[in-house]
Amino acid sequence: MVDMAVHKCLPDSPCLGFCTTALGDDVCKSCGRTFEEVTRWIVMTPEEKAVTWERLNKNGWWEAQRSAKHVR
């Protein structure tokens, strides 16, 4: 089970504004979400979003991506 409290401090969406699924990638090289996650995000339940966030935050991957995007 995913700890929902952990995800309350995160932005609503992991989108970093450079979506590569629009270019045909199955997984966005920017935020790490799958094409399905990107397209369904607005209708996903909080629990579904939390599962996605948990995967994206594994080993600090999403935070590293976010930091790299702000440097540019």
Rank of each mutant, 00 (worst) to 15 (best):
E37H: 01
V27T: 14
K29T: 07
L23K: 12
F18A: 14
P14F: 05
S13L: 05
K29D: 11
G32F: 11
C19G: 03
K8M: 13
S30L: 06
F35M: 08
E36R: 09
C15K: 05
T34P: 02
E37Q: 15
G24E: 03
T21L: 02
C15W: 04
E36I: 11
A22M: 10
L16Y: 03
P11N: 09
G24V: 11
T20E: 12
F18D: 14
T21W: 00
A22T: 09
T20C: 05
G32H: 09
L16V: 10
D26R: 11
G32W: 10
C19D: 09
F18Q: 11
G32S: 10
C28L: 05
E36Y: 05
L16N: 04
C28E: 08
R33S: 03
L23F: 07
G24Y: 02
G17M: 06
C28N: 05
S30K: 07
L16C: 02
E36N: 09
L16R: 04
P11H: 07
T20S: 15
C19T: 04
D12E: 15
K29P: 01
E36K: 11
T34G: 05
K29N: 12
S30Q: 08
K8H: 12
G17W: 03
T20D: 04
D25V: 03
V38G: 00
F35N: 12
C19L: 06
D25L: 07
G24S: 10
E37L: 02
S30T: 06
C15H: 08
